[in-house]
Design a protein around this nucleic acid. Sequence first.
DNA 1: AAAACGGGGGC
DNA 2: GCCCCAGTTTT
Length: 199
Amino acid sequence: MELPIVTEISQNRRSPFEVLIATILSLRTKDEVTRSASKRLFEKANTPQQMLGLEDSEIAELIYPVGFYNTKSRTILEVSRVLIKDYGGSVPDDLDSLLRLKGVGRKTANLVLTLGYGKLGVCVDTHVHRINNRLGYVKTKTPEQTEMALREKLPKQYWIQYNDLLVTWGQNVCKPISPICSKCDISIYCKRIGVTKSR
DNA sequence: AAAACGGGGGC
DNA sequence: GCCCCAGTTTT
């Protein structure tokens, strides 16, 4: 099973900055599309200093297929500027500082901590949110509520592996539409809440 | 709470 | 052709 792109980047010993940028590119975007776009971008620039050497429109053109390319290219440049100005050109390794960056929300911040620094983070995206609610493990409306619930319920030692596992599972088995329940190892524990069609 | 940001891929 | 995607910001 192919690894999600951001995970793959972290496992190739890429920098926290690359994890951060790849995560920004991946927002609301299919994994395969993010894969090619991040590769193109990193060939041109993979540090905040190098990013600032590119024009807004240049970045937008490189990442074009990911969608939201105007927002994302501005975010990349703005984040790069702040990293140089306030953090000596490196990515901060605490949640509060990361959340203060424009364009970085809870999911991105926690993912940078987890994959960029091997630190604690419960990263709740649509996959983690959906799977936990289907299982009946949590009953939450927003991803942030799911994050807080998991911090209480899930043993710390599993937090880092947990996200990668569920995202991979969410992309390949417990899909948003027509999940392949016959291929699911934890099917017997699942309440299938909100699952209409399954295979 | 809902809209806006967006092209690509699945069906 | 229609709907969703490792979200976040703005209204």
